[in-house]
């Protein structure tokens, strides 16, 4: 496994091909869009998806905790698929999650799927979380907002970015990080999470000068520039994203 270092706002951040970001200076692991209990959320609507998504997501997260040994985790929102998600956690999974978080500083940035702090779980809940020159939020702010005057850089999730690399056999699509000098957008980490193409105006408009996409591979990342050019304008799909 090879993580890719990038520098934003004077900070060195490591992009892990598993789809998480590590900030060595603060021993902080950042993960976006866990969407825990998405399976049971669908079940309530009559589609019995396999009830193993939470288990799967947590197992993968546990692996990364062993790899990076952080002292703090920041979850960038949509950690649960819906408001009732934390309450629906099966006993074993709730237990595993609490064990995993024991001794760690936990920050739950709130997202559109989980606007309330998760019930019965340790940690700090916040709309936004700032540490030094980095601000962590669920959804990136548009360029023409207070973002324009803010110092430092923004780390966000929400959009589930995916990118397609053209090959002679057609495109190959993977979840990806998306970064320019002032923003890093993380791919979704949850087991059942789909994605949105980075050329979609909803994402592309956030990177008016283009960005670099880091597509997730098994052992490493594959990077390519995504130009300021984007797909022809269509009505932007309304958030929220799954």
């Amino acid at each position: 496994m090879t993580a890719a270092p990038i520098h934003v706002a004077g900070e060195r951040l490591m992009l892990d091909p598993a789809g998480v970001l590590h900030w060595p200076a603060r021993r902080t692991l950042v993960v976006a869009d866990l969407h825990l209990e998405k399976g049971s959320s669908f079940a309530a609507a009559g589609r019995f998806l396999p009830p193993y998504d939470t288990r799967e997501t947590l197992e993968r997260l546990a692996l990364l905790l062993r790899r990076w040994r952080p002292v703090r985790i920041i979850a960038l929102g949509d950690s649960f698929h819906d408001r009732g998600g934390a309450a629906r956690l099966p006993l074993a999974e709730a237990e595993a999650l609490r064990r995993m978080l024991a001794g760690l500083e936990m920050v739950w940035v709130l997202g559109n799927h989980d606007p309330d702090p998760p019930e019965g779980l340790p940690g700090l809940a916040a709309e936004e979380f700032t540490d030094g020159r980095l601000v962590f939020r669920h959804q990136a702010l548009p360029p023409a907002s207070r973002f324009a005057t803010q110092p430092g850089a923004e780390i966000s999730g929400h959009f589930h970015p995916k990118a397609t690399m053209a090959t002679r056999a057609g495109g190959i699509t993977r979840p990806c990080f998306l970064a320019d000098g002032r923003r890093v957008m993380l791919p979704a980490f949850g087991a059942f999470t789909g994605g949105l193409d980075v050329r979609d105006p909803a994402i592309a408009d956030l990177f008016p000068r283009g960005a670099r996409a880091f597509l997730l591979g098994r052992e490493r990342l594959f990077s390519m520039p995504t130009g300021p050019c984007r797909m022809p304008a269509v009505p932007a799909p309304a958030a929220p994203f799954a």
Partner: peptide, 24 residues
């Protein structure tokens, strides 16, 4: 393997190219 996926497993929904993660 790539080709098989590209020809079969790709779906487009409203401009979103969605594809399974690859098996390596």
């Amino acid at each position: 393997g790539l080709l098989a996926e590209v020809t079969e497993a790709v779906r487009v929904r409203a401009g979103i190219v969605d594809k399974p993660r690859h098996r390596e």
